[in-house]
Simulated assay, not measured.
Amino acid sequence: MAINQKSFDQVTGALSSLDRNPQAVRQRVVALEKVLERAFTVPGTQYKVGLDAIVGLVPVVGDWVTGAMSAYLIWEARNLGMSKWQLARMSGNAVFDTAVGMVPFAGDLFDFVFKSNSRNLRIIKAHLDKHHPSTVIIEGEKL
């Protein structure tokens, strides 16, 4: 399927209009990590799972979809100006999670335990806390 220049310009214009200030980025990545890793509580336990584990139950397609969502976190990190080392660590987490998640049954169990997006969120938060301390939030209040 070919895309014409007008359509391309509309898509890139919409992407460039995303708010890139660090506070907005923090809110987006925290929200996405919550959806992917801890959106639901397993009944009868206090264990949290998200779309990564649930959608990952769909063979191959589920892991590709959640892998793409993980790639969005890495894209946001790149836009923050994070180092290549940090981006490589985050990419490694996402690729490892996606690859192992594609293994039938064992990969599904792995998705319930290995939370690559939570690991990547910690890397992003450490960067934001160091380079943009005004974005730190404690108990729902901005410092």
Rank of each mutant, 00 (worst) to 15 (best):
Q10H: 13
E33A: 08
I124H: 00
V29R: 00
G81P: 12
G140L: 07
P133H: 15
S70N: 09
Q23N: 08
D108I: 13
A77D: 01
E76A: 06
R20K: 14
G107Y: 07
I137C: 12
T45K: 02
Q86C: 04
A31W: 11
K6Q: 13
K115W: 13
V11W: 02
T98G: 03
N117I: 11
S70K: 03
Q86W: 00
L51V: 11
P22R: 02
V95A: 08
V65N: 00
L73K: 00
G101V: 06
L73Y: 00
A71N: 01
F112G: 15
A71T: 01
P133K: 11
L18N: 14
R26H: 01
N93C: 04
V58C: 02
N79W: 02
R122E: 15
R26F: 01
E141P: 04
P133F: 06
R119N: 04
Q46F: 08
V95Q: 05
R89M: 14
P22Q: 09
S16C: 09
S83L: 01
W85T: 11
K34F: 00
F96R: 08
D129Q: 10
M1N: 05
F8G: 07
L87H: 06
V30Y: 03
I124M: 05
T135A: 08
V60W: 09
L121D: 06
L121A: 07
G13F: 01
R89L: 15
V61A: 11
D111M: 03
E139W: 13
R26E: 10
A68M: 08
G101Y: 00
D111C: 02
F8C: 12
S91M: 02
W64T: 12
F112R: 15
V60Y: 10
A31G: 15
G67E: 05
V136S: 03
S70A: 05
L36V: 02
Y47P: 01
K84Q: 06
K34G: 03
A94H: 08
V49H: 10
L109Q: 03
L73N: 05
S116M: 08
E76T: 03
L87K: 03
V29H: 01
Q86K: 08
L128T: 14
L143K: 15
M90Q: 01
F105C: 07
R20D: 14
K115L: 14
A2M: 11
I137R: 14
S7F: 00
A126Q: 15
H132R: 03
L36K: 01
N21Q: 11
A94T: 03
K34L: 06
H132A: 05
T98H: 04
Q23A: 12
A24Y: 06
I54F: 04
K115G: 11
V58R: 02
A24W: 04
F96L: 13
Q10R: 12
S83E: 04
M82V: 02
F96Q: 10
I124V: 11
G107S: 13
T98N: 06
Y47M: 12
W85S: 10
E141M: 14
R20I: 11
H127Y: 09
W85V: 06
H131Q: 12
P59M: 05
M1V: 05
G62L: 07
R28W: 09
F105D: 06
K125R: 07
V29S: 05
F40I: 12
K34R: 12
